[in-house]
Write a protein that binds this DNA or RNA. Structure first.
Lengths: 183, 183
DNA sequence: GTCTATACGCCGATAGAC
DNA sequence: GTCTATCGGCGTATAGAC
């Protein structure tokens, strides 16, 4: 089939998006097969044709995260304001595809999903390495944890169903702190 | 009964401790009534005599947290090394009663338990206020988020069943960062 | 490829014996 | 005060029709 090249079914992507949305907006507990199928507009049986079980769905979501994180790391390395400032700014919830998949994965990590925890550790390590090249190993930890702390708080404040909190003022504070740490 | 004064049953405390342990070591999902009862050495029926439902068990656990946090706040305010340094050091997992109940509550917050989220917001606010009196409002956020970030990472790394990670080096980095922020 | 129907286990909670 | 027995509901997964 010329030009076809194993195109993925539309329904499959719809299911994955529905899964991600439910994780972000309502948490891991609400992201049941029933709920995902309903939101994606397919039956439960239809869902399980595309993903043989829930674990498979998680795997593909984590692959999506890895792709987006890799792209973001490149942008972070090339950022004119520096990696540290870029990192702090991007620790804000802005509803980008990366933010969405990241929060979704965090929801899974919260229920102690092993594979997700491993991927997170790898992501953290890659951030830390890049930050260290800019501000040194010791201060890199401080910057990393600052961003993580803000992210964590925003996620808790968000809760189920509620909109993301306004945290612009916090970003300003943290950027000022990064300036002091760098100097 | 002279000297008796409505002493609480032993089993009740045992159940609460078992609940806390399961939350800390295995997460919210594993802390089922069956599992809690088994670990506490009572039957499910016996458990439900002391706590009419699971929500009641959570409530009492949160009361325990409030008590311990209040005591810790006093120690933090009186700490000779300053509130900020005290806060960073105490963001380490050291298996104190406060640490245990705090991590337990975090597990509940992770699955988006509303009441727990509210209590957390209050605790964060009280810490922030105390930190601000020492290093000013802007830097207080930086310090708070640093500690939260380290705590968050330690909890993720800990995962289910695994021992807490060694993070002494991270504390050193953060204390150095706090020095720079204060100066 | 997508659906319906159903099996099966686990969880929270109730009833009632001891 | 603590137990056993059991119910209803939900979540994952399978079987098989269309």
């Amino acid at each position: 089939m010329i030009g076809a090249m194993a195109r993925k079914p539309v329904a499959r992507e719809a299911v994955l998006d529905a899964f991600e949305s439910l994780l972000v907006e309502e948490g891991a507990r609400a992201a049941t097969l029933d709920a995902v199928a309903k939101r994606a507009g397919v039956s439960k049986g239809g869902l399980l044709y595309h993903f043989p079980n829930k674990e498979a769905m998680i795997s593909v979501l984590l692959e999506r995260m890895d792709r987006l994180v890799a792209a973001d790391l490149e942008a972070m390395a090339a950022a004119p304001e520096g990696a540290a400032a870029y990192f702090i700014k991007s620790s804000l919830w802005t509803d980008t595809p990366l933010d969405r998949v990241f929060v979704a994965a965090t929801r899974l990590a919260e229920v102690a999903h092993q594979e997700t925890l491993h991927r997170f550790a790898a992501v953290q390590a890659s951030w830390l390495e890049l930050l260290a090249s800019e501000v040194g190993p010791a201060m890199a930890k401080a910057v990393l944890y600052m961003g993580d702390g803000m992210y964590f708080n925003a996620m808790l404040a968000r809760g189920p169903g509620r909109p993301p909190p306004e945290m612009g003022a916090d970003v300003e504070s943290l950027l000022a702190a990064v300036e002091r740490l760098r100097g």
